[in-house]
């Protein structure tokens, strides 16, 4: 901001009134937040010049304070937006693996079912549980267990498309929501690819170990039109896979597994 120009002023009464009127106008402009308003300061150095220069200086201080306030508000708003994003991320993601958490999965699943054609939702759910996770934790320690879970999450994501959602819903339990899937065969094919990828040996601090996973598969449709029913069905199929051996993928079948119940699956 450059300093205001200096103009000579007469000392007569009408000239004095004009100078005071100009200063009043500047004050009114400053009150309306028009901070570039300035009064001319004369060469007499008298009280009117002092008032004019004082108003100008106060205007400059007011402008500087206002700009500082706006800068701080913008800074705080930006910090708040970042904090909000971080909180939202934490609320919807698993801290260890970075995958979606149970809340985010449920939101996604519900939203997907609501948006879909009720007669043909075209989605499938995979319920995945590692077969030897406790052994890894007991043998190699919890750090190795955490590394295994992180690597499992990464490998699952490699097999998914952008519209699919992978979530960690428990210690070594993962749920995958497959989008745009028509049949159990399609869903099982994805499940087998994931199982194969998870079977590849893991390396941790010089150790190499192999683990398998049991996967239950449920395809939406018929009676499986609600979120809890589909997840419960995939969960029931996963337990069937566990009972039947290691590293199996089992497709939910109502006759074989019974009506899906979320309470029975431990999600109720």
């Amino acid at each position: 901001m450059s300093a205001p120009a200096v103009a000579p002023h007469g000392g007569d009464a009408s000239g004095q009134d004009r100078r005071l009127e100009e200063i009043v106008n500047v004050i009114q402009n400053l009150a309306a937040l028009r901070f570039d308003a300035r009064a001319e300061v004369g060469t007499a150095g008298d009280f009117v010049d002092a008032v004019a220069a004082g108003v100008n200086s106060l205007g400059e201080e007011l402008e500087a304070s206002y700009e500082e306030l706006e800068r701080r508000v913008a800074e705080r708003t930006s910090e708040l937006a970042i904090a909000t994003r971080e909180l939202r991320h934490q609320a919807l993601h698993d801290n260890l693996t970075g995958l979606a958490n149970r809340v985010a999965l449920w939101d996604q699943l519900t939203h997907r079912l609501e948006a879909a054609d009720r007669r043909k939702p075209k989605i499938a759910v995979l319920f995945l549980d590692l077969d030897d996770f406790k052994m890894v934790n007991d043998t190699f320690g919890h750090a190795a267990g955490d590394q295994l879970l992180i690597e499992v999450a990464r490998r699952i994501e490699v097999e998914l498309r952008s519209a699919d959602t992978a979530a960690r819903v428990g210690g070594d339990e993962f749920v995958v929501l497959l989008d745009d899937v028509d049949t159990g065969d399609e869903a099982q094919a994805v499940a087998r690819r994931i199982a194969d990828r998870l079977r590849t040996p893991y390396e941790f601090e010089g150790h190499s170990y192999t683990t398998t996973s049991s996967i239950g598969v449920a395809v939406a449709g018929d009676e499986l039109t609600a979120s809890d029913a589909i997840v419960a069905a995939a969960d029931a199929a996963m337990y069937d896979a566990k009972r039947s051996g290691r590293g199996l993928c089992v497709l939910y079948n109502k006759i074989r597994h019974g009506p899906a119940s979320l309470v029975d699956a431990g999600w109720g």
Partner: peptide
């Protein structure tokens, strides 16, 4: 030496 300079 005058009101203006004193104020400034």
């Amino acid at each position: 030496g005058n009101p203006l300079s004193r104020m400034m």
